[in-house]
Simulated scan of single mutants.
Amino acid sequence: MLMNQSPLAPMVRKLEQWATLTDVEREALLALPYVLQSLAPNEAIIKEGDRATHSCLLRSGFAYRQKLVRTGARQILAVHMAGDMVDLQNSLLRIADHGVLALTAAEVAFIPREAVLDVAFKHRTIGEALWFDTLVDGSLFRERIVGIGRRDGATRIAHLLCEFGLRLEVAGLGSHHEYELPMTQEELGDCLGLTPVHVNRMLRILSDEALIERKQRAVRIVDWAGLVRRGDFDGSYLHMRSECARLWNPVS
């Protein structure tokens, strides 16, 4: 099967951000067994406490990782977009220590964990690319912790808007200057440790500072360089290609 015709092609394109794959390695990835499933918003991809049987490729839409506390309040740990392997770490951990849910309508390819482990151990470069992918997830988590712990509300939101736009552009899913943000103000608050009211107020501040324009969930970044500075944004934690540095250091 040609790569562009395969449901697993987004996974191959994502892993090629981290490593140079041979034709044999691409074919090995495309030959992985999978089951496609369409999910509605807030439908679980994997539930906290589940025994992991599959790794999950997000083929379309958006998803988010969450942890719930005893009161039922949630913390959104990360937002994922098409091409991401949203449950790769559970191929080794076996028991899910957090939940992954569809943020929007989404299509997911469920790949048996044994097949993922087999291809990773048979092909060193694939194994390194999968490992790199999980390490970048960890880098995103660290950046979110720093933001919630040490940045004010407006800076947290500006930082997230920069990160989201940059990731969309590199994934070929949109432009860093203008995109649809697939999150409600409540979801933004659960991601950034803010109340929905605080989120709304901080978004207005960024608009008043002529950094962004909003219409419902559509975001247009009017002053990218200004938003980068306002958000204390240095995208090196995303570990993207070196030429992407111009997007978080636009005045250099």
Rank of each mutant, 00 (worst) to 15 (best):
W18I: 00
L168T: 02
Y34E: 08
A109P: 08
H54R: 11
V116Y: 10
S236Q: 09
G61C: 10
L130S: 13
I95D: 05
P33W: 13
G235W: 09
A31C: 01
F62Q: 06
A105Q: 13
T155H: 04
R51T: 08
A9N: 09
W131E: 08
L32I: 10
E25K: 01
P41G: 08
A73Y: 07
I126M: 08
A19W: 07
I221Y: 05
V35I: 06
G49E: 02
A82R: 08
G138V: 04
T104F: 12
H198P: 00
G174W: 06
L192D: 12
A28L: 03
H159T: 00
L32M: 11
K215D: 11
F110W: 15
W18T: 00
M202W: 02
G83M: 02
L101V: 10
A73S: 11
A52F: 05
M85V: 11
E128H: 08
Q5I: 00
L92S: 13
A218N: 05
A105G: 15
S6M: 01
A105S: 14
S6A: 01
M240R: 04
G172P: 05
E43I: 04
L30V: 07
M202C: 14
Q66E: 15
Q185R: 15
D190A: 13
V170E: 12
K215Y: 09
H80F: 15
L211Q: 15
E43V: 11
G235Y: 05
V108Y: 12
D232W: 04
V108R: 09
L117D: 03
Q17M: 14
Q66A: 14
R113G: 04
H159L: 02
L160R: 04
A9M: 08
P41Y: 09
